[in-house]
Design a protein around this nucleic acid. Structure first.
Lengths: 223, 223
DNA sequence: GACATTGGTGCCGAATTGTTACTAATTCGC
DNA sequence: GCGAATTAGTAACAATTCGGCACCAATGTC
C-alpha cells in the first residue's frame, strides 16, 4: 500500500499579535481592489523547501518592517471555509511582536482583537485559534516576554499577563511567583514615566530551575 | 498584492497512541517491499474538501479496526526531511485510543514509544512531537480519559497519568485533586482483579466547574 | 509642603499540598 | 481456618503557598 499523493494549493496565514494601546492587536493588510473583504491577514505560499515558520517570518517581516520574536503554528485547515487566495489548505501561524516594535507599511494597520473588521471566514477562524492558543500557552511558555522589549518593568509584565488572561492579577502574588521562578534579573536602570515612583527595569534571563514536580492539576482543563 | 498559490503534495500522518502492556505505544504499519524503512506511520492524502481530522480518523480506523477517541494536530512540516511517500508537506496528527480497544490488521503492530524501529526522518519527528504534545497537554485537557475505556478504576486513571508524565504520583493527593474537580462520577460496579480489594469503577462525567481563578504559574514553563 | 500617583514589600489568615499512617476487602499459602 | 500479601481507599497533620490588606518609598503636581 503506497498511497498516491495529490497536489493541492497551500497558504501560510500569519496572525501577528502585539500589545497596542492597552489591547492585544492584530496586524491586517488592505485587500486588493475587488476582494470581498477590505482587510485580510498577511499571507503567502511557502517557497519550495522553505520551513513554514521561516515563511511566516518572511511574510510578517515584509508587512511589519521588523521580524516578530516568536512563531507558533495554531493549526492547519483544509475545510470549505473561504480563503482570500482560494488556497485549499492553510497553515495558521501566530507571531508575537514586542510592544512598540515595527513600523507597519502603508497597506497595514493594527486592529484590537475585540474589534476586528470582517475577514474571510478562514482568516476569522485562524485569528480566533491564534488568540486561544496564545491565551492557553501563556502559563507554560514565556510568551509574555516576547510581547515586551528586551528590558521592561514588572508592571509592564503584569499588564501583558492581564491583557492575555483578561483579568486582573494581584501585585504581590504576581511578584512573589515571578521571584520564585528565576526568570528575570534586574538591570541597574530605572525608568521614570512622568508621575509616580520610577520603576526598575528587568530583563528576561531564565536560570536553570530545579524540577518543580507538582501534582496533577485537574482544575486547569479548558474543555 | 495577490500572492500566487503553487500546488504541492500533502500527506496526513497519524500517530495512534494507546497504553499497551504498561507503556505508551504507537501503531505502525509494515512498509511495502522496496521501501527504505520496514515500518511507517499510517498515512494518506486527504480527500478533496475532507477536514484533516476526518482524514486522520479514516486512516487510523482502516488500520486499527476502530476509530480512536480523540485527535489533535501536532504540527505541519514542510522541511527537507524525507517522507515515505515523498510528500512535500505533512500534517502530523496524534490520535488517542483507549487501552485494549481495536484489533490491528495483519500489517500493523504496536511498538512502545521507548523502542521504536527506524522510521523515515519526517515520521520520526512527527512521533516525537506527538509524544511531546500529549505529555504537555495532559494537565489542561482530559486526554487521559481518552486512553481508558468508558469505565475505569481510579488506579487505572492514575497509572495512565504516570505513563504520560513518566513519574510516580501520590495516591492521596491524586484522588483529592480529582475529587475537587468533579470530573468523574462513581458507578455502582466494582471490579475484582485477582489479588487485593476490589476497586470501584468510575466514568468520566465532567460537571460544570466554578471558575478556578488561580494566579500565574511561572513554574510550569517547559522551555 | 500636602497630595496624588505609581512602585515595591511585609505580614497574616485561609486554602492547598505532600506525606505518613491507618483501615478495608480480597487472594494466596499453609 | 488463618495469617501474610496485595490492592483500594481515607484520615489527619505539617509545611507550603496564596490572596488580600496594609504599609512604606519615590516621584510629579499644585
Amino acid at each position: 500500500m503506497k498511497p498516491v499523493v495529490r497536489r493541492t494549493t497551500l497558504a501560510v496565514d500569519v496572525v501577528v499579535l502585539s500589545p497596542r494601546s492597552d489591547a492585544l492587536a492584530v496586524l491586517l493588510v488592505r485587500s486588493p481592489a475587488g476582494a470581498r473583504e477590505r482587510w485580510s491577514l498577511p499571507w503567502d505560499a511557502p517557497a519550495i523547501g522553505e520551513a513554514l515558520e521561516d515563511a511566516a517570518a518572511r511574510i510578517a517581516g515584509a508587512v511589519l518592517g521588523s521580524v516578530p520574536a516568536f512563531f507558533e503554528q495554531v493549526g492547519t485547515l483544509s475545510d470549505g471555509r473561504r480563503h482570500p487566495g482560494d488556497a485549499e489548505v492553510s497553515v495558521g501561524i501566530a507571531a508575537l511582536s514586542p510592544a512598540g516594535s515595527g513600523a507597519p507599511s502603508e497597506e497595514a494597520e493594527w486592529f484590537p482583537l475585540a474589534s476586528l473588521p470582517t475577514l474571510a471566514p478562514r482568516h476569522r477562524t485562524i485569528v480566533d485559534r491564534a488568540a486561544a492558543v496564545v491565551r492557553q500557552r501563556v502559563d507554560q511558555s514565556p510568551l509574555a516576554f516576547r510581547l515586551l522589549p528586551p528590558t521592561f518593568t514588572l508592571s509592564d509584565l503584569q499588564s501583558v499577563y492581564e491583557l492575555l488572561l483578561s483579568r486582573r492579577l494581584h501585585k504581590a502574588s504576581f511578584r512573589r511567583a515571578l521571584q520564585a521562578s528565576y526568570l528575570v534579573e534586574p538591570t541597574d536602570e530605572w525608568r521614570s514615566e512622568g508621575r509616580g515612583r520610577p520603576a526598575q527595569l528587568f530583563r528576561y534571563a531564565p536560570k536553570k530551575r530545579r524540577g518543580a514536580r507538582r501534582g496533577v492539576r485537574f482544575d486547569l482543563f479548558t474543555e
